[in-house]
């Protein structure tokens, strides 16, 4: 085996070993144990997540950011659209009452960033959810069933990739008017595609594994094989890709605002604030830095939390 020129190949695997790409089977694919296993799985995962310091700190920080975004504007002295006629593009200062400065219209940047956080965090939440539920299920079913259905489902994904997104957005706006829920719909419509492709790829590889075939032979229902065996074993790439999706959709939302579908003045979002700040980054860097720091901290937290979740949910180490 060590003299092989090809690093590995399936047939030469040691007997009983798992083939390449090969996560491990759950010890006993017991069709009866579903409900009980599910419950203890969640509790077990939570216990293990709690032991991960970085993940817990991240989780707490995320909750703090979300809370501040929701409650902060109620406490702050400035309104979302309130213009301070004496402070256009004012740098951060304690005296003026604008702790993080103002924008070009003399509006308090901290207030606007917190309002923007509500939009961006909710967009991120919805996009991750859509990408998780639709993308993962779609990809897993496509890969597991395979054959004709796989082909049809994947050609549909190809079509969705190829349609000109901008016109899709503009038409959504024409048909349904301006509505914040359309942001979610437009972003949701495209954000599950990558995830579906990735999960399908993993499923194609996983479904030939012995543990899946064993489950099959034991008469486990297809739906259960997909949800209990395939998806948990693809969880690593799934979680990482979700954390990668978040910054993408937060910035995508600012493109929707450009088209007139996203948030409209005076409301704002992190993506919009960042693209506004880019114009002024040399003269008024705080306008770029403030929303960017909020975004970056959120991303770091999501990342550590994601890693922790992955470890906690990993069926192999259970």
């Amino acid at each position: 085996m060590t003299t092989d020129t090809t690093p590995y190949s399936g047939p030469r695997m040691p007997a009983g070993g798992t083939p390449p790409g090969g996560p491990n089977p759950p010890a006993e694919p017991d069709p009866e144990a579903g409900a009980v296993a599910g419950e203890s799985l969640t509790r077990d995962a939570w216990r293990r997540l709690k032991q991960n310091r970085a993940a817990m700190v991240s989780l707490i920080l995320l909750i703090v950011i979300a809370t501040v975004c929701v409650l902060g504007p109620l406490v702050l002295p400035w309104g979302l659209a309130e213009v301070d006629w004496n402070a256009f593009t004012a740098p951060p200062s304690l005296e003026g009452g604008h702790f993080l400065g103002t924008d070009a219209n003399g509006r308090d940047l901290l207030t606007r960033t917190l309002y923007g956080g509500r939009v961006s965090l909710s967009v991120a939440l919805v996009a991750s959810f859509v990408s998780l539920v639709i993308g993962v299920l779609y990809g897993a079913i496509s890969g597991y069933v395979g054959g004709r259905l796989d082909n049809l489902m994947m050609r549909f994904v190809d079509i969705m990739y190829s349609l000109p997104f901008m016109f899709l957005v503009i038409l959504l706006m024409v048909v349904f008017g301006r509505n914040i829920f359309l942001i979610y719909a437009a972003i949701g419509a495209v954000e599950w595609l990558d995830m579906a492709r990735i999960v399908r790829g993993q499923t194609l590889s996983l479904k030939r594994r012995e543990f899946v075939e064993a489950a099959h032979a034991l008469g486990v229902k297809d739906s259960k094989i997909v949800t209990r065996h395939l998806i948990p074993n693809a969880i690593g790439p799934v979680i990482v890709y979700v954390t990668l999706t978040v910054p993408k959709v937060i910035l995508l939302e600012s493109f929707l605002s450009f088209l007139g579908l996203g948030v409209q003045e005076p409301l704002t979002s992190w993506g919009v604030l960042i693209s506004e700040g880019t114009d002024t980054m040399q003269g008024a860097p705080w306008m770029l830095l403030v929303p960017s720091i909020f975004l970056a901290v959120t991303l770091f937290c999501l990342n550590f939390l994601g890693d922790g979740l992955r470890d906690a949910l990993d069926p192999k180490t259970r």
């Binding site: 301006r178 605002s257 088209l259 007139g260």
Partner: peptide, 30 residues
């Protein structure tokens, strides 16, 4: 139409009209 300067002006004008009891709904599009 979407452009930084147009936005700045529209926001300022809306604020200037506010004391008149005018409630402005800003609509931007490409």
């Amino acid at each position: 139409n979407t452009l930084e300067d147009h936005k700045k002006i529209a926001v300022a004008v809306a604020a200037m009209w506010k004391p008149l009891g005018v409630e402005v709904d800003l609509i931007n599009s490409e």
